[in-house]
Write a protein that binds this DNA or RNA. Structure first.
Lengths: 349, 349
DNA sequence: GCACTCCACGAAATCGATTACGTAACTCGC
DNA sequence: GCGAGTTACGTAATCGATTTCGTGGAGTGC
C-alpha cells in the first residue's frame, strides 16, 4: 500500500538514459551543452527529460564538480536597518544566475562568525558576501581567518582599500546635499553628523566641507556637530540647540534620516516653517523619510545597487575572472522632497 | 611550483582513515556516534581528526544520506517590514541545530515562486518556510504545488487552519490594547483599522469589540474606521476627522504603528496633549514606535518568536515527528510607553 | 585500398561520504 | 570443548551526477 505520490522516487539521470537508450554520460553532455553529441540523440534526450520531468540533483552535481551554485551572506546583524535592501540586491544578482543564497547571522560575535564560516565552507559554498548592515555599533571588519573561497565585503567599513569591498559614496552624497541646499539659496547650513566613532562620518563631513568651500559659502563650526548616537532624540537635541542661536541656521543637513526626523520635530516645536524658515536634508532614504511631515529630502543610499554589484563581483570571481582587490564606491542619489522645496505648507497652525 | 596553501587539498575521510589505520566506515561511525566502535579506536580516530583538521564534507554527506541540513525561506518580499525579524527567528532556530538557511525571494510573482521552489527542491532542502512579511499587498497564500518536503507557513494569512502555519494572536493583541486603555480610564475609544481587504483587520476589530463589550464600555461606530492603506498619512487623516467631532475620542487605537504616527501628528497639530487629551496605542512595535514623541505604547508582534517557533516546528517535522497540520497563534505583548501613561509632557508649547 | 583523423557515443572511475552486510575474534553456557 | 551469540571492525555497494578515456565507424587524402 504505497501512495503513488510519496512512493514516486525521484527521476534520475539513469532513468533518462535508459529510456532514451543512451548512457548517462551522454545525458550529462546534453545537459551541459557539450559539443560532442549528435543532433538527433540530443533531441531524443531532451524530449525524454521533459517527458519524465527529470531535474538534475544539485547535490550530486556539486559533489563531483566542486561547485555548488551557492553563495552565502554572512552578516553581523540580520535585523540591521540596511540589511534587507542589501540582501535583496545580492539575492537578485544570484538568482539571475541560478545561484542560491545561504544566510548566516553572527550577531557580531566572532565566535559565531567563525562557526558559521566553517559550516559554510563545509557546505562548499562557492563564495561569500561578508556584510554589515547595522547602525548599532561600528565594525572594523570581521576577525575572520579568510578562506581561499572568493569573497566580497559589503557595507563593511574599516576593511581597507586592498580587499574586494563595496561601499556607498558617502562623500559624494554629502556633496549632493550641500549643493542642493546652496542652490536653493541657503547660506547658514548646519550639519548634524553621526557619532565620531563611525568612520563614515568623516567622509560625509568632508563632502559637505568641500562642496561649501567650492561654492564659497562659509561653514560655521558652531553648526557642525557630532551626535552621540544616530537616534532621532539626538537629532532633536542638536537641532534645538542650533535653533536657539542668535542667528539660527536656515538649513540643517543630517547624516541620517533618523537624526533628521528629530530635527524636523525640533523645528516644528519652535513654530518654524519647513522649508520656509529651515530646510532639512537627511541621509539614507529609509522608508520613514517619505512619510515625514513634510516628506524629507534625503540622500539615498544605493543599497540595492550595492548588493547587486557585490553579488555580480562575487559571481564573476567565482567564474574565474581575476578578482579585483579594491574598494568600489557606489554613487548616492538625492531625493528632493518637500522639506527643502515647495510651498512652506507645513508651517504649524 | 605549487603554492602550499592553494595546493593543500581538503582533508578527506580517507586521509583520516589511513592515518588512523582504520577504514572509512569506522571513521564515519565515530563521527555519527554509532555504538559499534571500541573506545580505543574511537579515541584514535578523534585524535587524528583534530590533528589533521578534518571536516566532513556536507555535500557528500547529503548525497548519500538524503538530508542536507538545509532549510529554505521562501518569501514574497525580502524587504517587507517584518521580514528581518521573522527571518532572524528562523535563522536562530536553524543555526542552533547546525542547519543552514537558504533564502529565496519571489517578489510575490507566482512564476518566480515556482522557479525558486524547483531550485530549492533540486537542492534537496530538508524543509521550507513559506513566509510573507510585507504590508504592501495582502496575500491569500502562495499558489504553489506543495511538495512532499515538510513546510511551515509563516505570517501567511489566508492559508487556512489545516496546514502548519504560524500567525500572531491578532485578536488577543487588540484585547490587550483595549484593556489597557480602559484601565487607564478612557471611555471614548477610536479605532483606526487597516484596509478591510486585509484579513488581519477583522481579528483586531474583533478583539477590540470583545474587550470593550466585556468591560461594558460602548464603542461608537463613528469612531471605527478602516484606513485605505497602512500609511501614516491615512492615520493622520482619520485621526484628524475623529478629533473634529463634537465629542472627540479620548484615546485612539491604531492597527499599525505607521497609522499611529500619523495619528500622533494629527493630535499634535490640533494642539492637544498626549496622553492627557488623547492616548494613542499602536500595533506592531516597529523600531520607530519608541522614537515617537511621545514614545508610542503599542502591541508588539512576536515576530522573533514566530520565526523561532516556525523553525522549530519545521525541524521537528524533518526529524520525523508527525507534523501537526494546524495554525498556531503566538501571543502579542503590550509595550506601555508615554503615549498612554505618564505626565502629559508632550503637549505642544 | 590503406592509414589517418574526426565524430559520436559509452564504459568506468570519481567526488566523499553512509550503510548493509560479512567476518574474525572473543565470550558464554553447558 | 563446542556451537551460539556478541562485539568490533572492514569490504564494498551506494547516492547521482561529471569527466576521462577508449572505441567503432564514417570520412578524408593519396
Amino acid at each position: 500500500m504505497s501512495s503513488p505520490r510519496s512512493a514516486a522516487a525521484r527521476v534520475t539521470m539513469r532513468d533518462v538514459a535508459s529510456v532514451a537508450k543512451v548512457s548517462t554520460a551522454t545525458v550529462s553532455k546534453v545537459l551541459n551543452d557539450r559539443p560532442d553529441v549528435g543532433a538527433e540523440v540530443r533531441q531524443r534526450v531532451l524530449d525524454t527529460i521533459t517527458r519524465l520531468g527529470y531535474r538534475p540533483n544539485t547535490v550530486a552535481r556539486g559533489l563531483r564538480s566542486r561547485h555548488t551554485g551557492t553563495i552565502a551572506i554572512l552578516t553581523d546583524d540580520l535585523e540591521g536597518i540596511f540589511t534587507n535592501a542589501l540582501m535583496r540586491g545580492v539575492e537578485d544578482a544570484a538568482s539571475t544566475y541560478d545561484v542560491s543564497v545561504l544566510l548566516a547571522n553572527s550577531y557580531g560575535d566572532p565566535e559565531r562568525e567563525r562557526k558559521h564560516l566553517r559550516r559554510l565552507l563545509d557546505r562548499q559554498v562557492d563564495g561569500l558576501i561578508i556584510m554589515s548592515g547595522n547602525r548599532v555599533r561600528p565594525r572594523t571588519g570581521p576577525a575572520l581567518p579568510l578562506p581561499d573561497t572568493p569573497y566580497v565585503f559589503l557595507y563593511e567599513y574599516g576593511v581597507g582599500q586592498a580587499v574586494p569591498s563595496i561601499l556607498p559614496d558617502d562623500r559624494g552624497g554629502a556633496v549632493l546635499a550641500a549643493e542642493h541646499l546652496i542652490e536653493i539659496g541657503r547660506r547658514r547650513i548646519g550639519f548634524i553628523n553621526g557619532p565620531a566613532s563611525w568612520e563614515v562620518t568623516a567622509d560625509r563631513l568632508e563632502g559637505l566641507t568641500d562642496a561649501m568651500r567650492a561654492a564659497g559659502v562659509p561653514l560655521d563650526p558652531a553648526f557642525v556637530r557630532h551626535a552621540p548616537s544616530w537616534a532621532p532624540e539626538d537629532g532633536f537635541a542638536l537641532a534645538d540647540a542650533m535653533l536657539a542661536a542668535a542667528q539660527p541656521p536656515d538649513a540643517i543637513f543630517c547624516a541620517s534620516d533618523d537624526l533628521a526626523t528629530g530635527a524636523l520635530a525640533a523645528i516644528h516645536e519652535r513654530g518654524l516653517s519647513i522649508p520656509g524658515d529651515v530646510a532639512v536634508v537627511g541621509f539614507d532614504d529609509r522608508s520613514l523619510a517619505v512619510h515625514q511631515r513634510p516628506p524629507l529630502t534625503t540622500v539615498a543610499l544605493p543599497l540595492l545597487e550595492m548588493g547587486l554589484v557585490a553579488g555580480q563581483r562575487l559571481l564573476a570571481a567565482i567564474d574565474g575572472e581575476a578578482q579585483q582587490h579594491e574598494l568600489i564606491r557606489i554613487e548616492c542619489q538625492l531625493r528632493v522632497r518637500a522639506s527643502t522645496v515647495g510651498a512652506a505648507a507645513f508651517r504649524r497652525p
